[in-house]
Amino acid sequence: MNKSSSLNERLVFILIIGILALNYPLMAIIDKPVFLKGIPVLYLYLFFIWSCFIGLVAFTLRKNPRPKPLSKKTPPPGKL
């Protein structure tokens, strides 16, 4: 029960991020006739946020989230 309710909370959180990022006023920041690498920034922004959102949902809903072994997370020596 606990696990599923925290999953629900995470999904709602992602939704809120999505709604904020894809609406006024955040979108107005990028709403300019500027090109980045030849492509209008507004288009780039929309499709970028869109992909990120899909990735977030996919990551949150992945099956059997297994914690990674701790040893892999520790940075290699000398790179701190």
Partner: peptide, 20 residues
């Protein structure tokens, strides 16, 4: 311009709640 997009962004947003 981009006004066709909310029709597809809406379902994307909604899909995050599908699991619930």
């Amino acid at each position: 311009g981009v006004s066709f997009l909310p029709i597809y962004i809406g379902p994307t947003l909604m899909a995050s709640l599908w699991w619930i």
